[in-house]
Design a protein around this nucleic acid. Sequence first.
DNA 1: TTGTACGCGTTATCAA
DNA 2: TTGATAACGCGTACAA
Lengths: 351, 351
Amino acid sequence: MSARRATIADVARAAGVSPSTASVVFSGRAPVTDPTRRRVIDAAQRLGYTGPDPRAASLRRGSSGIVGVVVGARLGAVFSDPVTRLQMDGLAEGLAGVGAGLLLLQDTGEEAAGPSLLTTPLDAAVLVGCNARMRDSLQVLRARDVPVVVIEGDGGDGVPQIRLDNREAQRELAAHLAGLGHRDVAILTLPTAAGRPPGWLDAAAEAEIQVDVAADRLAGAREVYPEAPAYAAGASLIDEGLAAGRMLLADPAARPTAILAQSDLLAAGVVRAAEEAGLRVPHDLSVTGFDGVVVDGLSPYELTTAVQPAAEKGRAAGSAVAAMLAGSPAESLRLTCTFRAGNTTGPAPAG
Amino acid sequence: MSARRATIADVARAAGVSPSTASVVFSGRAPVTDPTRRRVIDAAQRLGYTGPDPRAASLRRGSSGIVGVVVGARLGAVFSDPVTRLQMDGLAEGLAGVGAGLLLLQDTGEEAAGPSLLTTPLDAAVLVGCNARMRDSLQVLRARDVPVVVIEGDGGDGVPQIRLDNREAQRELAAHLAGLGHRDVAILTLPTAAGRPPGWLDAAAEAEIQVDVAADRLAGAREVYPEAPAYAAGASLIDEGLAAGRMLLADPAARPTAILAQSDLLAAGVVRAAEEAGLRVPHDLSVTGFDGVVVDGLSPYELTTAVQPAAEKGRAAGSAVAAMLAGSPAESLRLTCTFRAGNTTGPAPAG
DNA sequence: TTGTACGCGTTATCAA
DNA sequence: TTGATAACGCGTACAA
């Protein structure tokens, strides 16, 4: 029909008012007499004008109403990882007040063709997950003066962060095992860097871990088991745990009596690996997890684990963003995990 | 430091080139001599210019690189419902090529304070889930000339839709029960309208179901069981299934021998309700689900259900969006479910 | 290959 | 309460 889309100027003209008045009618940022509003609305309807173009409004206003959620993993992983999911849930809730939309962005390190932090109109961003490259993203955002909140990571000076007491919680789990008499313990860590293949961590590699969560949890375990061998998984998945578990249990002569896994999913995989190897959990092998999420298909096992307030993390991040958007400074927060005893840990086998 | 953010014009001036040249350097839409590019990059760095402002670029270009995903439920539900989750996963994958960001939008019917379809710069939108109000959203989007793809819904003329053979699949499940000799069957449907409380569906209510998925599946069941009583759940959740199951099994005199639930989660709830009532599944009561998702904690039961290609639905929607963005018309698609026999259905009890 | 000039559609500001 | 004006920051014909 129309060669060109109607603009607010067209509407104003048709209504016999000035563009600014028409604008005000739509934005409601100033009082307008009823008859005037009427005329404008009518004209708009007549012309098929559906309201201010968000792009133009965004340019003029300087804000877009969009909050970016930067995840380190594949986007799909956001929906499959239970912890992230809970976090997102909480985030949406915490952000509800601002009325901002959540834009899912992945930062995989590669310069993707996708919309990066550079090309997307963001009012604020939440960096979530344990990704090494996150620090680069942070640089970009800070350079752009985009308010940032970091979940589980270090944003440095003045960047509010929402964290867990990963180290303490992991130490508690390790102490639990020590209390049960375990001396031969192996550690199964989260990925230590984006895209790094799974494998043993030597001292050098351990010093270079780029993912804070992995490093912190490892440090907690190290307080109790300074010498325990550590193996890094390729991802926090049951299958990765299974694969890693096979490695850790491969040599019957050097078999640990307990494995500290840095996530419940990994732990679940280890339990499977143990079953596969004919080991009884917890009789022959104790396993601990981390997160306190519901792992599907693991029954009758219930992991001994540290329960983290995942949804609360998201909610806190949302509130922080809301605060920053409102101009007030947001505060960092450190949430605590709760030890939960399950039936995957028991006394160390005699011997 | 700087009173005002540097613009591309500032950079161009500092580099001694024209704004258009500087623009080209950043967009790469035309060849630029190496030394020239160098000068521009240097100048940008010096001025702390981090690239074109997405808002301005978006206005000028007429596109934002953002694809909206409109969900009917609370945003958090997107992450908790397994089917939606799989869909989102597939969608992200299907959209990866376009390099568009996914903006999560909820359409709860209320005029929320949040970013609506009206105030957000969208290049395209995917309407997902079974929401009655979706049709309103569609109007808005069409008025704005925003390309739309609908998952599980009717967009009308020329709106590509990705659907399932809900009716046929549900009929197959019903036929399965009929084959087992069941005559007293009850139907537990998905919510029939946003926000409607759970309750029995009479003929009138049944005729007015606004959610296509619920209506289609019900129609399939009706082909086999025209007279079966139907009860609408308040949401697709295990707990809702449990509550509904209690209702359906409340009267020992009029107890069905089988219940057709329109989702696996609802079916899982029904199984629980049966256990609660001291009924054995499938000996005393057969239960069928729909979706074929993994329901946590349901073992040792495995639902007899229709497995839907949820991730594939999302992927298809993503491809459709990509196509429309590229200017080519997208095609509608109808995917098929697969019957899967579990251990929750058996011969009708004698009597 | 580079520069000029203009418009994208709004909205903030200020004056009337 | 309304109107005039000037940005907002950029992309892109078109001419050089």
